[in-house]
Design a protein around this nucleic acid. Structure first.
Lengths: 225, 225
DNA sequence: GCCGGCACAATAGTAATGCTATCACTTTGC
DNA sequence: GCAAAGTGATAGCATTACTATTGTGCCGGC
């Protein structure tokens, strides 16, 4: 058996950084530290000064890698979608029917990431929490159009396109595959967030299953049927 | 015919303001000015100093009404949900079947607000755009739990509860009515936002209909069937 | 009509944040 | 061994978020 670990290379759009953090030790410490710190204190409280202290460097050095905290968040979120796209591809490879693949994809997209793959300096469990709690802010900005023009959302679009393709396989006449995919992804995050903070506007799980996964699986298959 | 205009009184949770803006001329100018300004420049660029200049008052005076811009946004968003709840109640009153009422509710919640009712100092068209573009930030904050404990989200919860009730009328065995409602509301906003800024991850409307309204109506009825 | 209180204007000021600049030292690549 | 690049250290400025102080006009109560 081949035990070579495929080096997980996720090439985030260069417009998101000034200097590629993957190319230096400090860069990786900055990314890893940012994930720790945003997960701990939230994006609002997060500043480059605090990050610098945490990582044991200076504010100016952080600014050599990232323009500002919005770009850094965008970098993290798009890294996540690049990673998720790899994961998805691997998980769906062996599945025979489009229905199976769709079911598996929805599960992967809506369930909580439970274990750190330890491939890289990135802690995927923490990153998943960040994505759930903060990633929508990446789109809800005046800078969306500019970021979009620079190709920042490429990995996200690619993943949405992939899952839309599966939906079209299941039902070629369904008119809204993209809207369904983004509704599942972002709706999943939101329901996860609500279940922690505003439980009264969500619903209890049935049969000990994960309510979010169940709900969106049910919703998807019914909607495209 | 009775031409008395019911004065639209929306009592937003007192924890959201320091001094009720409804009780003074300046308070109303602050609220109206905030809606104009956030709609124009977005929440990120919005500051109390700019608002004060726009309204012709001072920063310190604005701070007498609202603690900070997050609370002010929360005030605006909850005013919107109070207003929407009134609207919904009025629009559903005459409809005979639960299906009709659900269909109407989904339309009201997902379509764009096209005309300013002119009842008040609040411009509902602009406020609707603000809610679409910024309201999710109200929940995606470390302060959610505290805001929630103070009852800030009351109007939102009330509206979710009302629509959930209709869903239960249509299908009493459906397990996830709340999740479905919040998915429709917030998903609707997000799709509307995406259609303006990231059209490639949405879908074109069919038959000249509004794609967002169509999609969520279809999704809802299929999901609960 | 006078008085007290309130709302607001005007101004000042502090601390934190976001971001830039400079310079010296060290590591790395050739 | 040298040039170039990367980093640390420090300083600094503009803006933001928020608070405090003081004076003035207005309004209602007596």
């Amino acid at each position: 058996m081949d035990v070579t670990i495929t080096p997980l290379v996720i090439a985030v759009c260069p417009s998101l950084y000034l200097k590629d953090p993957e190319t230096s030790k400090l860069g990786k410490r900055i990314v890893a530290g940012a994930i720790d710190l945003v997960d701990e204190i939230g994006l609002e409280q997060f500043t480059f000064r605090k990050l610098a202290v945490r990582v044991g460097t200076t504010e100016a050095s952080v600014y050599r890698y990232f323009e500002n905290k919005h770009k850094l968040l965008l970098y993290l979120v798009m890294w996540y979608w690049g990673w998720m796209d790899h994961r998805l591809t691997a998980a769906l490879a062996g599945l025979p029917t489009a229905e199976d693949r769709l079911r598996r994809a929805i599960r992967l997209l809506t369930e909580t990431v439970a274990e750190d793959s330890d491939f890289s300096h990135v802690n995927e469990v923490k990153l998943n929490r960040i994505v759930v709690a903060e990633s929508l802010k990446v789109y809800l900005t005046r800078a969306v159009d500019e970021d979009n023009r620079q190709g920042a959302f490429q990995y996200y679009k690619q993943l949405v396109e992939r899952v839309s393709g599966i939906i079209r396989e299941v039902n070629p006449t369904f008119a809204y595959p993209h809207m369904l995919v983004t509704t599942i992804i972002e709706g999943g995050h939101l329901q996860r967030h609500f279940s922690h903070h505003l439980p009264r506007i969500t619903d209890a799980p049935r049969d000990g299953e994960d309510a979010v996964v169940c709900f969106f699986t049910h919703l998807a298959f019914k909607t495209i049927s």
